[in-house]
């Protein structure tokens, strides 16, 4: 399956991926409306980690054998036929068991009153995830690397 891979040599830490992740998961998918008009702005599902000149964008790896799916106490997390690890937000209660077992630290806690997890869904339905298509440096790519 296609996954998002970071190329840290090209990442300048501009965080446009985070911004466009918000846009991609907003109601209108319009950057101005998402940031200025919509009541509930989604949290970015990708995080840029930065330390001096080193930076990279990071999000759920959609593991072949996802620990989070095995551990999920409510059945909210599942791996679909395409291989995407997705969260059914109606079932997530924010117990953070997935955070306990995700070896990448890629699952975020919802902010404020949002007691649900926040994780990458590879922009389900899109040709290319928003973060990838809006990265000015191709510092994140969406490709098949021959891993099952």
């Amino acid at each position: 399956m296609k996954r998002i891979y970071a190329r840290e040599e090209y990442c300048v830490g501009c965080r446009l991926c985070e911004i466009f992740c918000v846009v991609g998961h907003s109601k209108t998918r319009d950057i101005l409306k998402a940031y200025k008009k919509e009541l509930h702005r989604p949290s970015p599902r990708v995080v840029v980690w930065e330390n001096g000149p080193l930076s990279f964008a990071f999000q759920c790896r959609h593991c072949d054998q996802p620990n989070c799916v095995e551990a999920c106490i409510t059945g909210a997390l599942s791996k679909n036929e395409e291989g995407k690890v997705l969260c059914n937000e109606d079932k997530c209660v924010g117990c953070w068991t997935c955070i306990t077992v995700c070896p990448f630290g890629a699952i975020k806690r919802g902010e404020g009153d949002n007691k649900k997890i926040v994780k990458c869904d590879l922009c389900s339905g899109e040709e290319e995830p928003y973060c990838v298509s809006h990265c000015p440096n191709r510092a994140i790519v969406y490709e098949e690397r021959g891993v099952e």
Binding site: Y5, A6, W49, E50, F58, R61, D64, Q65, P103, F104
Partner: peptide, 27 residues
Amino acid sequence: FCLLDLPAALRKERMRGGETVESLGCA
């Protein structure tokens, strides 16, 4: 603390799926 804090070799093994199968089959 996050993957950024791991030594480069260990971090890259974890993140670049295409290079090692184990890095993605995290079970």
